[in-house]
Amino acid sequence: MNENNRAKMSLGTEIATMLKSNVRDYAMYIALVLIFIFFGIRTGGLFLSSRNLSDLINQTGYVAVLAIGMTIILIIKHIDLSVGYVAGFLGAVSAILLKAGLNVWLVIPIILCLGIVVGIYQGFLVAKVGVPAFVTTLAGMFIFRGLLSLVTQGTGTIIVSNRTFRNLSNGFIPDFNSGGSIHILTIIIGVIAVILMTYSQFKSRKNMLKYNFQVSSKPIFISKIAFLTLIIIVIFSILAGYKGIPWTAIIVGAVLFIYNFILNKTKLGRYIYGIGGNAEAAELSGVNVRKITFFAFASMSMLAALAGILYTSRLSSATPQAGLGFELDAIASSYIGGVSVNGGIGKVTNTIIGALVIMSLTNGMNLMGVDISFQYIVKGAIFILAVAFDVRTRSGRK
């Protein structure tokens, strides 16, 4: 066998090994690509249009924010069923405060702080009193649903007229030339994103080689960078063809960066994974499990407050139905994104992909005119398939 054939075989073996060992992570990306292709074809390209993809990002914003917080909760083997109505209620409070004449930049921190207070209350019940998270947050769901009905019962719907607030989930970053057909700043940001991604990949590979960790071969590594570059260029080019990057993407990107840094670069992140893997062992090794639990619930409710702001901004109003089913989309996004049902495993970056899968299904089926009843059935089927796939692949590795 000649050298070329041996190289081809080794390369093929490496690709097969990578796919097998990372099948759970790759599966969600493949699923998202297939969803985009399917709806792109079935809607005659409407699904892939610049305007619809911008709308998809804005629609996904509140779910993505909730799912990031839910990922941490699920990693430590808890759950929060109250986040939907916490988001709905605090979104309504923000509308009330804006209507009362408060400055938008004062309202936003007030709502986020109220979210933290809610999280501390629920974290106290779970970590200190010992009430199971399921019971605590189920009670919270009822409480905040009642509070939402209470604050909206007078008018039914509270209209938000503040333009700055509405632009949080409907606006786009400004461009140098507002009259141009192509959003130049979006193209520039896309190029910067490619440069930063490439630098990060090379730096990570260099560090792994420095400490003798196994890395992929150069052809695989270069192919990965080329594929990621292509994806970034396509996404930013499509967005540049409409109004550019939505502010929602900037907000979600900032939240994602912060929480990804916390989970991967700090002691707090290691403690979170440690508690999820084995809480008793983590406690014996000196980790304050109660404090971490407090943080997880306070963080979750703060992000629920942010989600409420984004959702209220998106609708430009607060309604008594706000928050309905939000927690289900957040939980589904986390599990589709690879969070283990046994805790201890999960990435917020993958959770964003899970949120995109859920919202892409909703967006695509709406464009096709699929009845809402069938939409719930499809999303439920996708959810159970994702969890079953997770269980099977992880048990297979053992």
Rank of each mutant, 00 (worst) to 15 (best):
V339P: 02
Y242G: 10
K206P: 12
A240W: 02
S317A: 15
I336E: 11
I272F: 09
Q214E: 15
A226D: 03
G337F: 05
L315G: 04
S216V: 14
L310M: 04
I258V: 15
L324S: 11
L263T: 03
A304C: 08
L228G: 01
P320W: 05
N350M: 08
F221L: 06
I238S: 04
F213V: 13
N342V: 06
L268H: 08
T229F: 11
N207E: 15
N288F: 01
F236D: 10
L306C: 06
F227C: 13
W247H: 11
I258L: 15
S223L: 10
G308A: 02
A281K: 08
A226N: 04
S299T: 11
N342E: 12
L284D: 02
S317Y: 09
W247L: 14
N260E: 09
T248W: 00
F261Y: 13
F297I: 13
I232T: 13
A318Q: 08
K210T: 14
A305D: 05
K243I: 12
M208K: 15
L228I: 12
G277Y: 13
L284Y: 15
N207F: 14
N212K: 14
I220L: 05
V339F: 04
A240P: 08
F295N: 12
A332G: 04
S313C: 06
I272N: 04
A226M: 13
V348T: 00
P246D: 03
F326Q: 13
A305V: 05
Q214G: 14
I251N: 07
I222D: 03
R270I: 05
E327S: 13
G253C: 07
L284H: 14
R205F: 05
S285E: 10
A322Q: 07
S340V: 04
N264R: 12
L310R: 02
F257H: 05
A281M: 13
F261S: 09
N350R: 11
K224I: 10
A226Q: 05
F227T: 15
I232Q: 08
I262Q: 07
R205A: 12
G274P: 06
K267P: 09
G253E: 00
S299D: 06
Y335C: 05
G343R: 08
I235W: 00
N212W: 02
F236H: 14
S217A: 00
G346K: 09
A249C: 04
G253Y: 05
T229H: 11
A304T: 02
E280P: 02
L209M: 15
A296V: 07
M302K: 06
S217I: 11
Y242V: 12
S333M: 00
V348D: 01
K206R: 14
G274D: 01
N207T: 15
V339S: 02
T229W: 12
N342F: 15
F294R: 01
A322T: 05
L268G: 10
Y311P: 04
M208I: 06
A281Q: 07
R205Q: 14
T266W: 09
I235N: 01
V339E: 00
